[in-house]
Design a binder for these strands. Structure first.
Length: 267
DNA sequence: AGTTATACCCGGACGC
DNA sequence: TGCGTCCGGGTATAAC
Protein backbone atom coordinates (compact mmCIF):
# COMPACT_ATOMS: atom_id res chain seq x y z
CA UNK A 1 0.00 0.00 0.00
CA UNK A 2 1.19 3.47 -0.78
CA UNK A 3 2.96 5.13 2.13
CA UNK A 4 4.89 8.38 2.49
CA UNK A 5 7.61 7.65 -0.12
CA UNK A 6 5.11 6.45 -2.72
CA UNK A 7 2.90 9.51 -2.30
CA UNK A 8 5.92 11.79 -2.36
CA UNK A 9 7.02 10.17 -5.63
CA UNK A 10 3.56 10.66 -7.12
CA UNK A 11 3.67 14.30 -6.08
CA UNK A 12 7.06 14.94 -7.64
CA UNK A 13 6.30 13.17 -10.91
CA UNK A 14 2.80 14.57 -11.27
CA UNK A 15 3.38 18.24 -10.50
CA UNK A 16 5.35 19.14 -13.66
CA UNK A 17 2.78 17.29 -15.78
CA UNK A 18 -0.59 18.56 -14.62
CA UNK A 19 -0.16 21.83 -12.71
CA UNK A 20 -2.04 24.79 -14.21
CA UNK A 21 -3.58 22.73 -17.03
CA UNK A 22 -7.34 23.19 -17.37
CA UNK A 23 -9.37 20.08 -16.53
CA UNK A 24 -11.26 19.38 -19.74
CA UNK A 25 -13.32 16.41 -18.62
CA UNK A 26 -14.21 14.60 -15.40
CA UNK A 27 -15.43 11.01 -15.33
CA UNK A 28 -16.71 9.40 -12.15
CA UNK A 29 -17.33 5.69 -12.65
CA UNK A 30 -17.86 4.99 -8.98
CA UNK A 31 -19.87 7.47 -6.94
CA UNK A 32 -18.58 6.05 -3.65
CA UNK A 33 -15.05 7.20 -4.47
CA UNK A 34 -16.10 10.83 -4.04
CA UNK A 35 -17.96 12.64 -1.26
CA UNK A 36 -20.34 14.94 -3.16
CA UNK A 37 -22.89 14.63 -5.95
CA UNK A 38 -21.24 13.73 -9.25
CA UNK A 39 -22.74 16.79 -10.96
CA UNK A 40 -21.38 19.09 -8.27
CA UNK A 41 -17.97 17.39 -8.43
CA UNK A 42 -17.84 17.86 -12.21
CA UNK A 43 -19.00 21.44 -11.99
CA UNK A 44 -16.32 22.39 -9.45
CA UNK A 45 -13.53 20.74 -11.46
CA UNK A 46 -14.41 21.34 -15.13
CA UNK A 47 -12.36 24.17 -16.68
CA UNK A 48 -10.54 24.67 -13.41
CA UNK A 49 -6.86 23.89 -12.89
CA UNK A 50 -4.82 22.32 -10.13
CA UNK A 51 -2.40 24.96 -8.87
CA UNK A 52 -0.50 22.98 -6.25
CA UNK A 53 0.08 19.42 -5.07
CA UNK A 54 1.08 18.83 -1.48
CA UNK A 55 1.61 15.66 0.48
CA UNK A 56 0.47 15.28 4.07
CA UNK A 57 1.12 11.83 5.61
CA UNK A 58 -0.21 9.34 3.05
CA UNK A 59 -2.57 11.90 1.50
CA UNK A 60 -2.10 14.07 -1.55
CA UNK A 61 -3.82 17.45 -1.60
CA UNK A 62 -4.61 18.88 -5.02
CA UNK A 63 -5.50 22.54 -4.61
CA UNK A 64 -7.70 24.00 -7.35
CA UNK A 65 -7.57 27.58 -8.62
CA UNK A 66 -10.91 28.10 -6.84
CA UNK A 67 -9.30 27.28 -3.49
CA UNK A 68 -11.15 24.00 -3.13
CA UNK A 69 -8.99 20.97 -2.43
CA UNK A 70 -9.11 17.38 -3.68
CA UNK A 71 -8.01 15.09 -0.87
CA UNK A 72 -6.65 11.77 -2.08
CA UNK A 73 -6.00 8.70 0.05
CA UNK A 74 -5.13 5.53 -1.86
CA UNK A 75 -5.50 3.23 1.16
CA UNK A 76 -4.87 -0.37 0.06
CA UNK A 77 -4.04 -1.07 -3.50
CA UNK A 78 -5.01 2.29 -4.94
CA UNK A 79 -2.80 3.81 -7.62
CA UNK A 80 -2.67 6.49 -10.28
CA UNK A 81 -1.78 6.46 -13.95
CA UNK A 82 -1.17 9.39 -16.25
CA UNK A 83 -1.59 8.65 -19.94
CA UNK A 84 -4.00 8.32 -22.82
CA UNK A 85 -5.60 5.09 -21.63
CA UNK A 86 -6.21 3.39 -18.31
CA UNK A 87 -3.50 0.71 -18.02
CA UNK A 88 -5.61 -2.29 -16.99
CA UNK A 89 -8.49 -2.04 -14.59
CA UNK A 90 -11.14 0.54 -15.19
CA UNK A 91 -10.57 3.73 -13.28
CA UNK A 92 -12.98 4.93 -10.62
CA UNK A 93 -12.29 8.59 -11.36
CA UNK A 94 -10.63 10.19 -14.40
CA UNK A 95 -9.46 13.78 -14.83
CA UNK A 96 -8.77 14.67 -18.43
CA UNK A 97 -6.25 17.36 -19.31
CA UNK A 98 -6.58 17.20 -23.09
CA UNK A 99 -4.23 14.68 -24.63
CA UNK A 100 -3.55 12.94 -21.30
CA UNK A 101 -5.72 11.90 -18.41
CA UNK A 102 -5.03 11.16 -14.77
CA UNK A 103 -6.62 7.83 -13.83
CA UNK A 104 -7.43 6.99 -10.22
CA UNK A 105 -7.35 3.20 -10.05
CA UNK A 106 -8.17 0.58 -7.45
CA UNK A 107 -10.00 2.96 -5.12
CA UNK A 108 -11.82 0.57 -2.82
CA UNK A 109 -11.41 2.01 0.61
CA UNK A 110 -9.46 4.82 -1.02
CA UNK A 111 -11.10 8.09 -2.02
CA UNK A 112 -10.84 11.40 -3.84
CA UNK A 113 -12.80 13.89 -1.78
CA UNK A 114 -13.59 17.54 -2.46
CA UNK A 115 -13.25 19.91 0.50
CA UNK A 116 -12.75 23.52 1.47
CA UNK A 117 -9.36 24.26 2.98
CA UNK A 118 -10.87 24.70 6.45
CA UNK A 119 -12.45 21.25 6.19
CA UNK A 120 -9.04 19.91 5.18
CA UNK A 121 -7.46 21.42 8.27
CA UNK A 122 -10.09 19.85 10.47
CA UNK A 123 -9.82 16.45 8.77
CA UNK A 124 -6.03 16.30 9.03
CA UNK A 125 -5.73 17.87 12.47
CA UNK A 126 -5.05 14.62 14.29
CA UNK A 127 -2.06 13.63 12.19
CA UNK A 128 1.27 13.52 13.97
CA UNK A 129 4.34 15.40 12.66
CA UNK A 130 5.93 14.71 9.29
CA UNK A 131 9.08 12.66 9.98
CA UNK A 132 11.13 14.43 7.31
CA UNK A 133 10.11 18.03 7.83
CA UNK A 134 12.83 20.34 9.05
CA UNK A 135 11.37 21.09 12.50
CA UNK A 136 11.25 17.38 13.32
CA UNK A 137 14.49 16.92 15.25
CA UNK A 138 15.85 14.14 17.43
CA UNK A 139 14.79 16.25 20.38
CA UNK A 140 11.16 16.35 19.26
CA UNK A 141 11.32 12.65 18.42
CA UNK A 142 12.55 11.74 21.92
CA UNK A 143 9.81 13.90 23.37
CA UNK A 144 7.15 12.11 21.33
CA UNK A 145 8.51 8.69 22.35
CA UNK A 146 8.64 9.71 25.99
CA UNK A 147 6.47 7.51 28.19
CA UNK A 148 5.04 5.36 25.39
CA UNK A 149 4.28 1.81 26.40
CA UNK A 150 3.22 0.13 23.17
CA UNK A 151 5.36 -1.71 20.65
CA UNK A 152 7.70 -0.23 18.10
CA UNK A 153 5.43 -1.58 15.37
CA UNK A 154 2.24 -0.07 16.74
CA UNK A 155 3.96 3.26 17.40
CA UNK A 156 5.56 3.63 13.97
CA UNK A 157 2.31 2.98 12.09
CA UNK A 158 0.20 5.17 14.39
CA UNK A 159 -0.62 8.22 12.24
CA UNK A 160 -1.32 10.37 15.28
CA UNK A 161 2.22 9.81 16.59
CA UNK A 162 4.27 10.15 13.40
CA UNK A 163 2.52 10.44 10.05
CA UNK A 164 3.13 8.66 6.77
CA UNK A 165 4.68 5.36 7.85
CA UNK A 166 2.79 2.12 7.14
CA UNK A 167 3.38 -1.59 7.38
CA UNK A 168 6.23 -1.90 4.89
CA UNK A 169 8.39 1.00 6.00
CA UNK A 170 7.87 0.33 9.70
CA UNK A 171 9.45 -3.11 9.17
CA UNK A 172 12.23 -1.66 7.05
CA UNK A 173 12.95 1.02 9.65
CA UNK A 174 13.11 -1.57 12.45
CA UNK A 175 15.56 -3.65 10.42
CA UNK A 176 17.69 -0.62 9.60
CA UNK A 177 17.75 0.27 13.31
CA UNK A 178 18.51 -3.32 14.37
CA UNK A 179 15.45 -3.36 16.63
CA UNK A 180 12.67 -5.94 16.87
CA UNK A 181 9.20 -4.60 15.98
CA UNK A 182 7.79 -6.20 19.12
CA UNK A 183 10.07 -4.17 21.41
CA UNK A 184 8.21 -1.86 23.75
CA UNK A 185 9.13 1.78 23.25
CA UNK A 186 9.77 2.27 26.96
CA UNK A 187 12.48 -0.41 26.92
CA UNK A 188 14.59 1.44 24.35
CA UNK A 189 17.66 3.15 25.74
CA UNK A 190 18.74 6.54 24.45
CA UNK A 191 21.19 5.08 21.97
CA UNK A 192 18.49 2.79 20.55
CA UNK A 193 16.02 5.65 20.27
CA UNK A 194 18.63 7.67 18.45
CA UNK A 195 19.28 4.75 16.09
CA UNK A 196 15.55 4.50 15.45
CA UNK A 197 15.32 8.19 14.60
CA UNK A 198 18.29 8.01 12.24
CA UNK A 199 16.98 4.82 10.62
CA UNK A 200 13.60 6.42 10.04
CA UNK A 201 15.12 9.43 8.30
CA UNK A 202 17.68 7.46 6.29
CA UNK A 203 15.22 4.88 5.13
CA UNK A 204 12.41 7.25 4.14
CA UNK A 205 14.83 9.52 2.27
CA UNK A 206 16.35 6.56 0.45
CA UNK A 207 12.91 5.18 -0.39
CA UNK A 208 11.89 8.55 -1.86
CA UNK A 209 15.14 8.73 -3.81
CA UNK A 210 14.38 5.34 -5.37
CA UNK A 211 10.70 6.06 -6.08
CA UNK A 212 9.18 3.87 -3.37
CA UNK A 213 8.52 0.15 -3.49
CA UNK A 214 5.19 -0.03 -5.38
CA UNK A 215 5.70 -1.37 -8.86
CA UNK A 216 3.18 0.32 -11.15
CA UNK A 217 4.68 3.22 -13.14
CA UNK A 218 2.84 6.54 -13.19
CA UNK A 219 3.26 6.96 -16.95
CA UNK A 220 4.87 5.18 -19.87
CA UNK A 221 8.59 5.73 -19.52
CA UNK A 222 8.48 6.23 -15.74
CA UNK A 223 11.54 4.30 -14.59
CA UNK A 224 11.72 5.84 -11.14
CA UNK A 225 8.61 4.45 -9.45
CA UNK A 226 9.16 1.18 -7.59
CA UNK A 227 12.95 1.01 -7.69
CA UNK A 228 13.11 0.82 -3.90
CA UNK A 229 11.44 -2.62 -3.96
CA UNK A 230 14.80 -4.22 -4.80
CA UNK A 231 16.25 -2.47 -1.74
CA UNK A 232 13.63 -3.62 0.74
CA UNK A 233 15.39 -5.85 3.25
CA UNK A 234 12.58 -7.63 5.06
CA UNK A 235 9.07 -6.70 3.96
CA UNK A 236 7.27 -9.63 2.31
CA UNK A 237 10.49 -11.66 2.35
CA UNK A 238 9.57 -14.50 4.68
CA UNK A 239 12.12 -17.30 4.53
CA UNK A 240 14.54 -15.37 2.32
CA UNK A 241 18.07 -14.99 3.65
CA UNK A 242 18.74 -11.82 5.62
CA UNK A 243 20.83 -9.41 3.52
CA UNK A 244 23.16 -8.91 6.49
CA UNK A 245 23.59 -12.35 8.09
CA UNK A 246 21.94 -14.86 5.74
CA UNK A 247 19.54 -16.19 8.37
CA UNK A 248 16.01 -16.84 7.07
CA UNK A 249 13.68 -13.92 7.71
CA UNK A 250 10.76 -14.41 10.07
CA UNK A 251 7.12 -13.57 9.41
CA UNK A 252 5.18 -12.77 12.54
CA UNK A 253 2.19 -10.94 13.98
CA UNK A 254 2.95 -7.91 16.16
CA UNK A 255 0.25 -5.60 17.52
CA UNK A 256 -2.22 -7.25 15.13
CA UNK A 257 0.00 -6.42 12.15
CA UNK A 258 1.82 -8.64 9.71
CA UNK A 259 5.47 -8.15 10.32
CA UNK A 260 8.87 -9.30 8.97
CA UNK A 261 12.27 -9.25 10.68
CA UNK A 262 15.60 -10.99 11.24
CA UNK A 263 16.01 -12.65 14.63
CA UNK A 264 19.80 -12.44 14.49
CA UNK A 265 20.18 -8.81 13.36
CA UNK A 266 17.34 -7.26 15.35
CA UNK A 267 17.18 -7.18 19.14
C1' DA B 1 -3.14 5.52 26.96
C1' DG B 2 -3.45 1.26 25.26
C1' DT B 3 -5.66 -2.67 23.12
C1' DT B 4 -9.23 -5.05 20.71
C1' DA B 5 -13.25 -5.45 17.68
C1' DT B 6 -15.89 -3.98 13.74
C1' DA B 7 -17.11 -1.94 9.43
C1' DC B 8 -15.72 -0.38 5.17
C1' DC B 9 -14.43 -2.69 0.07
C1' DC B 10 -13.49 -5.94 -3.66
C1' DG B 11 -9.36 -7.91 -6.36
C1' DG B 12 -7.11 -11.76 -6.07
C1' DA B 13 -5.67 -15.85 -3.87
C1' DC B 14 -7.17 -20.26 -2.68
C1' DG B 15 -10.00 -24.59 -2.64
C1' DC B 16 -12.36 -27.93 -5.03
C1' DT C 1 -10.75 -23.93 -16.73
C1' DG C 2 -14.45 -22.19 -13.62
C1' DC C 3 -16.92 -21.05 -9.80
C1' DG C 4 -17.51 -20.05 -5.03
C1' DT C 5 -15.49 -18.40 -0.74
C1' DC C 6 -12.78 -15.63 2.01
C1' DC C 7 -8.85 -12.75 3.26
C1' DG C 8 -6.15 -8.50 3.57
C1' DG C 9 -5.17 -4.05 5.08
C1' DG C 10 -5.52 1.67 6.57
C1' DT C 11 -8.60 4.16 9.04
C1' DA C 12 -12.45 5.65 11.98
C1' DT C 13 -14.99 4.60 15.74
C1' DA C 14 -16.58 2.30 19.77
C1' DA C 15 -16.00 -0.45 23.83
C1' DC C 16 -13.36 -1.91 27.57
Amino acid sequence: MPELPEMETYKQLLAPRILHLPIEDVIVNRAKSINVEIDFFRQELLHHAIVSIERRAKHLLFTLDSGLVLLLHLMLGGSMFYGTHSPNRSAQVVLNFGEYSLFFIGLRLGYLHLHTSSEINRLLAKLGPEPLNAPFTIKQFLHIMQGRKSTLKATLVDQSVISGIGNCYSDEICFEAGLLPARKINTLNEEEQSRLFQAMRTLLLEAIHYGGYMDSPLYIGDHLTGQFDARCSVYDREGEPCVRCGNPLIKDQVSAKKCFYCLRCQH
